[in-house]
Design a protein around this nucleic acid. Structure first.
Lengths: 229, 229
DNA sequence: CAACCAGGCTACAGTTTTGTGACAACGACC
DNA sequence: GGTCGTTGTCACAAAACTGTAGCCTGGTTG
């Protein structure tokens, strides 16, 4: 599905503004108010990008960076630092804080978006990809089309986003909660079992008889999309 | 709709001049101030032609060329290089920079326009030809005529522009907002649902019974024009 | 083996999104 | 002023999609 962004910002107004604009731009957004919360959220929502304010309560922005880098699962997640003019130290300039880029406040949304796209493209080219292929399944995100072995697959919006997200991270197992966060959005509340139903629908749409089911169920853990093998 | 041109030029005066004149000529223009921005913009605005200054901050014109060529989506976008006299090296002459043509500064707008038309006609006949065909539908942008299977289709101005825009980017899904921006203009405010109505009118005008509807509705996303297949 | 889970599956009622006819406003033209 | 073609909105109907509950199966556990 859309890239997942974790915003770590304690100032309410800015946090809300960022969330609103990022969502409008097509990102899925989670917000953490302080560093501690950020580290927890990062674990749950497996963001594709983290936006961290330099100054934060409890755990500073740099510290958040360091810890994210230290963890296996988040070591490679790109990080953009938000700094106020004046906080812009040599360390930030040199980016040896572990961040991939930084933006000086005040910044325009356009500038931020440009940085985000640049970083995402640099760090994970796969995310910006318009067409994803896996085995005989092709997903065209621009044309909004999915085909398997030359036949057109019709999917509802949710099934589309679900498949998109799974294909974006092939092989990886996601819990129902993670999928809800990523595909439905972190703000809506729906039953975890709903994921089952949608996975079921997705399977029905995707699989002809005789075809291998690309979605693997991992008992008491979740689901994963497996590339042909 | 009109051909989309990406101007990559760091000198403000020239950039503005180019934008102004190109728009007057009927092109839709995006401006990037340096090579980095250019690469980002190229991805977003999917230009039909790129005008690149040879000397640029951050990423040189040649480098921009090379990278655009390297990317799947922009590999075939025609590029015209702008060079100052003296920069005109043998490499430029040979055009093995990946550019399709080059213009030596200072140049007249008339000359530039001639080159642009020439390149567009050479590289993408569809854009410069003033006639677009898709399946049994023909659109003549100069004569302002649309025909399907030898029968004349009468369209109102708005429906014409809408069809024009959609046919210009076949297969691609546009949200109602994007269509409003592109077809109505980004400055007017109209309801998003108005797009639906016009799509409906367009469909009614275009489709005989028994004929396949070339406009695809993508639920909760928008509309796309699909080439017969 | 019985009690239990976790997940597959179906049915369905509620909701959201889209298609469309009606209509009033508008400007061009006569 | 009157006619005509076009346009943006609205309201309503139709269609598509969604979330949940409930039932079922098959494996797990004690």
């Amino acid at each position: 599905m859309n890239p997942q962004v974790l915003v770590v910002e304690d100032e309410d107004a800015l946090a809300t503004l960022l969330q609103y604009n990022l969502e409008k731009e097509g990102y899925t957004v989670a917000v953490a108010r302080d560093g501690e919360e950020a580290l927890i959220q990062a674990e749950e929502s497996t963001p594709d990008l983290v936006l961290v304010d330099w100054m934060l309560p409890k755990v500073s922005g740099i510290e958040v960076c360091r810890r994210l880098r230290g963890r296996q699962e988040t070591a490679n997640v790109p990080i953009i630092m938000l700094t106020a003019r004046g906080e812009e130290t040599d360390r930030v300039r040199g980016l040896d804080t572990g961040a991939d880029d930084y933006v000086v406040k005040p910044f325009s949304m356009t500038e931020l978006f440009a940085r985000i796209r640049a970083v995402l493209r640099r760090i994970r080219p796969g995310l910006a990809e318009d067409v994803i292929e896996a085995g005989d399944i092709t997903m065209d995100r621009v044309a909004h089309r999915v085909r398997r072995a030359d036949r057109e697959i019709h999917l509802g919006p949710t099934e589309f986003r679900l498949l998109d997200y799974l294909m974006q991270h092939p092989g990886r197992v996601f819990s129902r909660e993670q999928l809800l966060d990523a595909v439905w959005g972190s703000d809506v509340y729906v039953e975890a079992r709903t994921v089952d139903v949608h996975v079921g629908r997705l399977r029905k749409a995707l699989n002809n008889k005789e075809e291998r089911d690309p979605i693997r169920t991992v008992r008491s853990a979740g689901y994963a999309f497996d590339v042909n093998a």
